[in-house]
Design a binder for these strands. Structure first.
Lengths: 218, 218, 218, 218
DNA sequence: CATGAATGAGAATTCATTCAT
DNA sequence: GATGAATGAATTCTCATTCAT
């Protein structure tokens, strides 16, 4: 525009790739996160994806289907990646757990990653099967891995005999709340939102407890 | 138009008027929790409240205002109750904390109590001021109380020197996640959802840590 | 209000007179002129009249009836007053006409007097019988008086042989347009809206014509 | 809600799209004249234009905008046509004036032409900016032309020294009143509504006055 | 394949009118 | 007589979906 009349060589006429449906999903995700499903018009999605309304319907039979496709696409990589990574490691499970938590934290720092659970959380009332899908595809895979890690920790004497399933809540809950407080309510600690500090503090309490050693000795 | 046709409308039955707004809010809360704000029609609210559509508008200028009124009404009692109860107690802050957590747990067991935060959480994208209101009226009052309890715990040697603000997440997070998993995703531990077990497990870890004593001694 | 605590003696507790319906009509007229019939709510009328909505319906069976009553009330005095005044005078009819025009002008200066025709003009599409009523009760009485005045003027040699009925338009039209331009479109002559100047100019043209005498002699 | 029930809607028939807004405006104008703005439903407009409700909103953001578009469209051609035609002619301004009045009369005979000012006149209370627009675009262009014509007439000795601005009312007022009486109140002279007769009578009085020559000589 | 004009069910909101108190 | 809470028909406006081009 600025250099009118001058044409640079190169792939100037890159034809839109075959990634159309993905572009639609990207646009939809951004909008659903920003305004919610109900307040997002199909036309908005189309505009943001750079296509026409009709094109959205070319790839998705309905607006609902866009949401569903979105969640489906966002779910797949998860069950695969993290689980295999931490599922079969040997050694002190607390090290593994800490490492996993740190990874979870860093992934949660990416708004793109938070997007899907956020949308699911919001729209679950209107689309119960989304939650079910999310649970089936993500939670049902991830939680057992953590549970068995704890079980091994207890069995091998690294951990006290806690309830493994309930302990999962103690492990992940603080992270979730931290993000919710910051994102939804704007509650930010004096030190800032950087999740690393939270995780340090969390791990310290998680493993060693809040009580002072002196008191603990009592 | 005006001169043609005769309109014949009016009240069918009358009732007291004092509790009317509250009845509307009750109906709205139930429906917002059940179906979400967007999917709830004003007529639904009216029907559930046993009044007509027009009556809803007699007390609330818009559907949005119903939601706002709902949150406002649900928020008021909170800041008052819990805080005074635990804000000024003396003695081991861990005892107080444990007691407060148990109280919070029992209150969270009541779906009526969970209703407001649930709705706020869901509709916050469309109504950011609701979140701000909730933060201002609830969180900004409750969190400092917990923070200062922890500060005192540290100062008086009951607790290790943790970051008090971040520790709030470690204290409440597990409860929140427990409820979210159960309610939203239907993830229920083998032992059931009763929150008491969760709290026992949580408190044990919170105060004494996950690590086995033997390992801790290392 | 300013002299709180001090009560002046006198008819302090004047009970509302039996003029209720008139107060309602006054309120309605003011509002209909200001916002139009459709945009005026019965509640507005009631509020302005200092009564409740129900009371309006105590005196008028419907909102339409208020408008009708308004026009009816405003019409009655007209047919009586002006007509008898100018209908039977003797002498140069031009003097009488000029005098009548000046009176009409001064009456038109009063917004209260303009109010009824203004409302009728506006609402005539929705309430054709109002226009008919106005014509029957006002125009059909007033126009013939003017017509016969002109007829006498022609017969007695005061006026040229014009069409009396059409000439009524030439007599009153300029006044009407002057008011419409000023009120509706805000078109005001440099000299201001005072109707006296307009009437002077109008009468001069009406009786003596626009053409210069020299040209007329041609 | 969204996930339950299948909605199956869409176009039934297609037509060219260029003239669509004009068709809507035509329909709206007819209905606004016939029943008034308030009593005309958007659906009526759509039906009369042979399109669906939604199509009206495709071209106009609101019902108000239809009215505004209507007036805007109706106003444009006016300022152009008549003015250039009579603004620069030389010779006896009375001839020009008479010619202009006759043209105005013949245009006013067309109900289509009367339609816009009629609607503006009626709805001006609810939409003051319409009147302003009409004044700015029509009256502020037309009136000065007439005024300067009169000024020239006076300067060149064709007319008596009247107030040009006020005289505009004397020139146009009779026509306006004639139309209002006929259209609004059904007051029709014995000879019928044909405006030619009125104009003949009007011009005769306008230029030569109502007074008989004998009397004038006095 | 893409487009976007057209459709029309649906939902929020208004307000004239009624009638128990 | 007065009141004003309650009603619900009517209307504007939105937007998911279709389909001729």
């Amino acid at each position: 525009m600025a250099s009118e009349g001058v044409r640079r060589r190169g792939p100037k006429f890159r034809r839109r790739s075959e990634a159309r449906p993905d572009e639609v999903l990207d646009a939809a995700l951004a909008l659903f996160v920003e305004k919610g499903f109900a307040a997002t018009r199909v036309e908005d999605i189309a505009a943001r994806a750079g296509v026409s309304k009709g094109t959205v319907y070319l790839y998705f039979p309905s607006k609902d289907a866009v949401l569903e496709g979105l969640v489906r696409r966002g779910i797949l990589p998860i069950a695969e990646s993290a689980i295999e990574k931490f599922g079969n490691l040997e050694g002190d499970p607390r090290i593994i757990l800490a490492s996993a938590i740190r990874m979870l934290g860093s992934r949660f720092s990416d708004p793109e990653v938070r997007a899907i659970p956020k949308v699911v959380l919001r729209e679950v009332v209107s689309f119960p099967h989304l939650a079910e899908m999310y649970r089936r595809e993500v939670l049902d895979h991830v939680i057992p891995v953590v549970v068995s890690l704890i079980e091994r920790g207890i069995a091998e004497g690294y951990m006290r005999p806690v309830d493994p399933e309930l302990t999962v809540r103690s492990i992940v809950g603080p992270l979730v709340l931290h993000v919710v407080l910051a994102e939804v309510f704007g509650v930010v600690p004096k030190g800032g939102v950087e999740i690393e500090k939270l995780i340090d503090n969390h791990l310290s309490i998680l493993f060693d407890g809040l009580s002072a050693d002196a008191v603990k000795a009592e």
